[in-house]
Amino acid sequence: MTALLALLRRDIQVALRVGGGALIGVLFFLIVVVLMPFAVGPDLALLKKLGPAILWLGALLASLLTLDRLFAADHDDGSLDLLTMSRTPLELICLTKAIAHWLVAGLPLIVATPILGLLLNLDGDATVAVALTLLAGTPALTFTGMIGAALAVALRRGGLLLAVLVLPLSIPVLIFGVAASNAAVLEPAGFGAPLSILCALSLAGLVIGPLAAAASLRHGLD
């Protein structure tokens, strides 16, 4: 337990000290959202309708891009070798790293949502609802993405190949995330079901992600 807490603390410290890793994710999120009106036109009614979809796509891409180096940095400097030799199961180490990543990269996205909701003409309730769906759904994105990040280490490849492999797996999260957000904007009655499924997806990811990531890391170190 002390080992995992130490790892959590180290990863957060490193992320906060090195060039604001968390900030770049939020900045990317902001830019994606700002680009949208240029693509679809500054029609506020249309933006209000597309708002949840835009926010979710932005969050999806931001989490995918920031996850790329989740394990690669530790692999490059040899930390991963030592972590596998520690007396803590590799699955828990992967889980801890993912949680640390979500705290520094996922949580800021959710904090930024109200500001971005303003730009997309979402009213107060809708913004809170979208933020809530992101809170329930972004862990699932992190846990799916961490499989890709572990494969990146095993394959010595990153970038596009991983996006191609991981994005289809995150379709369910996108579907239910946008559905829950839309329900909140249009008809609050339909909000509960997709939100619960979103939570279920995050919980399933919590189990599958670390198992798969540890399996690919264990074979990918040599």
């Binding site: 490193v14 000290r17 490059d76 400097d77 040899g78 070798d81």
Partner: peptide, 8 residues
Amino acid sequence: RDALKSAL
């Protein structure tokens, strides 16, 4: 590889 984090 020395497993050190430069930021720490």
